[in-house]
Amino acid sequence: MIKLLEAQGICKHFGGLQALTDVSLSINKGEIYGLIGPNGAGKTTFFNVLSGAYTPDAGEFVFAGSQLPYGEAHKIVERGIARTFQNIRLFRELTALENVMVGHHTRSHAGLFGILFQRKQVREEERLVTERAYELLKYVGIERFANTVSKNLSYGDQRRLEIARALATEPQLLALDEPAAGMNATETTHLRSLIETIRHDGVTVLLIEHDVKLVMGLCDRVAVLDFGKKLVEDVPAVVQRSAAVIEAYLGGAHAA
C-alpha cells in the first residue's frame, strides 16, 4: 500500500471551541476513504483545513511524499487535491461547460500577453480545454446541458457538475463533502456508481458523508470523528461493530 495522504496531529480551534484535536489519519493510493461522524464532529473543519481554507493550529499534511503548504488553497489544488462543497458552490452565471473549463485553470497556462495577441499556443490550448471540459461533462453524464447556465441546472446535475469541475483540476485525491446530501434514492445510486468509476480511473477518493449506509457500502476504509477527535480508523466491517462508534451515534445510554 502506498500512502497518498497522511494527516499528522491536526489541531484547529475557533475561539473557545476545539474543533479538531490531534487528528491523524492516512489515506492509501487508490482507495475510497470515508470520514463519518455526527453533526458538528469536525468533518467539514477537517476538510477545510486540508483544502487550505483554514490554517491548522498544529499538525501537518504529507501528500504524495511531501508536506502541503498551509492556508493557500490554490497551491493545494496545484499539488493534486480537489474538493467539492457540502452546499454546492458553482459559478452561477457560467454555463456548465465554462464551469468545467474554469476547473482546468491550474492545468493550463495562457498568460496575459498570449491572450491579448492570441498566440497560437493559446488558441490551441483553448480548443483543448474546451474539448476536455466537454469530455468531462460526458464522463459525469450531463453533456447535453453543456451550454446551460449552471444556476438553471437541477440539483442532482449541479452535484455532478461540481464533481466534473473538481476532476478538471486533474487531482490525485478527490475530496467530496457530503455529495449525497439532498439526493433521492435513484440519484444516490447514480452517484455511487460515478464515485466507483472515478476510483476505477485512478483517482483516490475522500468521502465525507452523513449517509452511513452509503459510506459503509462504498468505502474501503472509514474513520470516525466525534467532538473533533478520531475514534477509530478501519475497514467498514470493524468500524460498524466498534463500541465507541455506536456510542457516538446512539448516545451514552446504549454503550453499556
Binding site: H74, V77, R89, L94, A110, R165
Partner: peptide
Amino acid sequence: RIGRAWAAIRDDDLAAKAVG
C-alpha cells in the same frame, strides 16, 4: 482562461480558490 477566472471569482470566490 483569465476571463473565466474573473467570472469565477465574481460568482463565488471561495469556490474559485477551491479550483486553484
